[in-house]
Design a binder for these strands. Structure first.
Lengths: 146, 146
DNA sequence: TATGTCCTGACAACACCATTGTCAAGAGTG
DNA sequence: CACTCTTGACAATGGTGTTGTCAGGACATA
């Protein structure tokens, strides 16, 4: 494989983190909930892609499709942990359940309306494997099972 | 177009109707509800396909996918009006909303669980155009609007 | 007997979808 | 300067949904 092109399989670059991100990565320090606000925009697209296990190009497409709406700062997308979790739900529905994006939209709208919870629709362990796992604490969900 | 091959775009053949079907087609006779039991298996696959505006091959695939379960008599599929209505809902979700079959399964399961009604999720007129319309009285939904 | 329609299992064509890849040109940051 | 971001665009690949078609057999009807 040649030199890694731009937006290729993402590699974490700490310098990309917005203000405050470093604090969250001190090993063994459990962040106070005010630091772990799940809606706080904190990750650049390459990091969010890595945490969500999708391509940055895919995140841009999800936004175009109306599935995501990350905040902007100086026209840079900043993803929150809630955004990342949402992408993981989408990933669960598309990869694991084979639902296409049109179907995902319907299902997520039902969840937004409070009629369902994706968690309750499928095997909890199955959903958990896709959706939960390190975001703020940077552990890889698959690696956690080792 | 050459001679119509088997299972091609369906053409109604009255001889295919199971017992009792003729009674329902007397013009101007409003059937008693006991005749119009929506769960009564009454239509061969070619007629059901025509009424649902899909191909017989598609009905067989829906059955394979677990989306439909028509009754059998002497190993012949017999579809009820409820079956046909269900196919029309599937058609609405796939053609109109672009949802794939995996997504349709999730949505229909939610309806079966009583959590949602597909009718309430979308514009009622839109759903109506796809789902309602002559089944027992053999009017074509699109033709009704003329 | 002949015809029509059904059955299962199988392969295929075509249009569309989802994800990724790549590119150019520009902007911002260190 | 190097890196990463932005938008807009085109393309490759594997998968999906619908339809088409085939063979061989079963059943009903004329």
């Amino acid at each position: 494989m040649a030199a890694r092109p731009r937006d290729a399989a993402p590699v974490r670059n700490r310098s990309q983190r917005p203000e405050g991100a470093h604090d969250l990565h001190q090993r063994g320090v459990e962040p106070v909930s005010s630091l772990r606000d799940p809606h706080r925009p904190r990750y650049f697209i390459s990091i969010a892609a890595e945490l969500a296990d999708v391509h940055p190009r895919t995140l841009r497409i999800y936004e175009e499709e109306g599935l995501l709406c990350p905040q902007r700062r100086n026209n840079l997308r900043l993803y929150s942990e809630a955004d990342i979790r949402r992408v993981r739900v989408i990933r669960f529905l598309t990869r694991r359940q084979g639902v296409n994006l049109a179907g995902v939209k319907v299902i997520l709208q039902l969840e937004a309306l409070g009629k369902i919870r994706v968690y309750d629709l499928f095997d909890a362990d199955d959903v958990e494997r896709f959706v939960e796992g390190g975001i703020g604490d940077d552990t890889d969900p698959d690696r956690r099972e080792l």
